[in-house]
């Protein structure tokens, strides 16, 4: 059997890759590991909240708008944009309705014109026919 150090090295790398993936998967599925991660995350968030609170206090004391005070402004702009789009849709709907109304009134007018024109045509036809009758 020939000893091949190069293919051995490749095999070792593949094995390392596989076992690393399995190990990381196993660690991440361990409840105690996830609990530690969760606790760390909780502490980081607590710290962030505390810093934010202190910063807000300092900014307020200096009469500088804070992130929280700007929130109201963001929401107002948000609502205004929504209302504007709602109006835009309503105006679009109204303009569609208006177009339909114009179409309807135009068709009524043209019908009325044709119905006015009809009796004349009938009269003319009867005039033409009447001499025949006298014969």
């Amino acid at each position: 059997m020939n000893f091949d150090p190069f293919s051995m090295q490749k095999k070792m790398f593949d094995e390392w890759e596989k076992s690393t993936a399995e190990y990381v998967d196993k660690v991440m599925r361990d409840p105690s590991f996830m609990k530690t991660i969760s606790q760390n995350m909780g502490s980081t968030l607590d710290m962030q909240d505390a810093i934010k609170e202190q910063t807000n206090k300092v900014l307020k004391s200096m009469n500088v708008p804070t992130e929280d005070s700007l929130d109201g402004l963001y929401k107002t702009v948000h609502n205004l944009e929504t209302r504007m789009l709602d109006f835009e849709e309503k105006i679009d709907d109204l303009s569609d309705m208006f177009k339909k109304l114009v179409e309807i009134s135009e068709s009524i007018q043209s019908e009325a014109k044709t119905s006015k024109a009809k009796p004349k045509a009938v009269k003319q036809a009867t005039k033409k026919e009447s001499p025949k009758k006298s014969k």
Binding site: M28, M34, I37, M41, G42, Q48
Partner: peptide, 20 residues
Amino acid sequence: MLSWWANKDHFEVERIVKSM
């Protein structure tokens, strides 16, 4: 893995959203 990460025993979503 995503389902496991989001498990309520170690993922306090309300707490995270409240802060972030």
